[in-house]
Simulated scan of single mutants.
Amino acid sequence: MAKRPNRAQTENRMAAEAREAAKRTQELAAKGMRRRRIIISSSVAAAIVLILGGVALGIALKPKDIVTTDAGPANMASWGIALTGSDGNITAVRTEATAATASPTATVWTGDDADKKHVQLYLDWACPACKAFEEGNAELLTDAVASGEITLELFPLAVVDRAYSTDYATRGANAAACVADIAPDSFLDVQERMFAAQPAEGTAGLSNEDMIRIIGEAGVTDPKLATCITDGTYRGWVEATTNRVAQDESLRTTIQGRTAFFTPTLATDGKPWDREGTVADYLTR
């Protein structure tokens, strides 16, 4: 069994990658590029750093000025899929599809959900660190949702495209949006299978056919899914939501003196976890 890096090694590497992202941002700005989506890859973590020009962008989950020219999926009005549960069952909150040029709408929890802890998780199905987080914490989080202790909102992003030769992160996030639109209650089962099948960085990533097959094994066999994945229906929406999160200052955390957005990022009511202690401890704070 391969020896896992200790916490100090992990933080050192994440900090180095954040510095690389900042340097890359400055280089692109100097070239006058209009699109400033800076994406770096890592076998441990991914960070996004963008130039903000000193403009305050408000708190997490507050709709930003960033919009998408493409319509978004149903059941992701906040640009995340919201999950609630009780008595051992988990269901997705249904919302209308996001219209083209529309900003996200923050989820408003009512009834029994209003007094629960509201947890958000920002992740990328192609990100190795997100896979590690899934393996270590998915059961804890889903049990907390199913028991009615928390609500959980998942935000699929495309952060590590550069780690693959076929924009696999974007294609994976598009597939996540397709699942949320077509079979939202199957989202967690699909996510578990997609992380289990995550390909190594430096490869082409999963093909569209691979993703359709894996998602089908989770019980999502609607023919519309294959069309949604193959056509890349929500690619424009994926880019917009990734950029929105990257520009949200309140979702940044500091590691080894470097402040950046890292995936995965876990937050409660928009305030990110400082990665101190365990996730179980964090949920009880």
Rank of each mutant, 00 (worst) to 15 (best):
M1I: 05
P5H: 08
N6L: 08
E11I: 01
A15P: 01
A15E: 10
A16L: 08
E17G: 14
A18G: 15
E20Q: 13
E20M: 09
E20A: 15
A21G: 14
R24I: 13
A29I: 10
G32Q: 02
R37A: 12
R37K: 05
I38K: 02
I40R: 12
A45D: 10
A46K: 01
A47S: 12
V49H: 08
I51S: 14
G53P: 07
G54T: 04
A60F: 09
L61Y: 07
D70P: 00
P73D: 08
P73N: 08
A74M: 04
N75E: 06
A77Y: 00
G80N: 12
I81P: 11
T84L: 09
T84K: 14
T84D: 11
G85Y: 11
G85A: 13
G88E: 12
G88M: 08
I90S: 09
A92D: 08
A99Y: 01
A99D: 10
A100V: 02
A106Q: 14
A106G: 09
W109C: 06
W109P: 04
D112E: 15
D112G: 05
D113S: 11
K116M: 11
K117R: 15
L121S: 05
L121C: 06
C127Q: 06
C127F: 06
K131N: 13
G136H: 14
N137A: 14
N137V: 03
L141F: 13
A146V: 03
G148R: 06
E149Y: 03
F155K: 00
P156M: 11
P156W: 07
D161H: 09
R162Q: 10
T170W: 01
N174W: 04
A176S: 15
A177F: 13
V179P: 00
A180S: 13
I182Q: 05
A183V: 04
A183Q: 05
P184H: 11
L188M: 13
V190W: 12
E192R: 15
M194S: 00
A196W: 02
A196Q: 11
A197I: 03
G205R: 02
L206F: 05
L206Q: 13
S207L: 03
D210K: 03
M211G: 00
I214W: 08
I214H: 03
T221L: 09
K224E: 12
L225S: 01
L225K: 01
A226Y: 06
T227E: 15
I229M: 02
T230P: 01
G232S: 08
T233Y: 02
T233W: 01
R235H: 11
V238P: 02
V238N: 05
T242K: 07
T242R: 07
N243T: 14
V245E: 09
Q247R: 12
Q247V: 01
R252Y: 03
T254Q: 04
T254P: 02
I255N: 00
G257L: 07
R258S: 09
A260I: 01
F261I: 01
A267R: 04
T268G: 02
T268F: 09
G270A: 06
K271C: 00
P272M: 08
T284H: 07
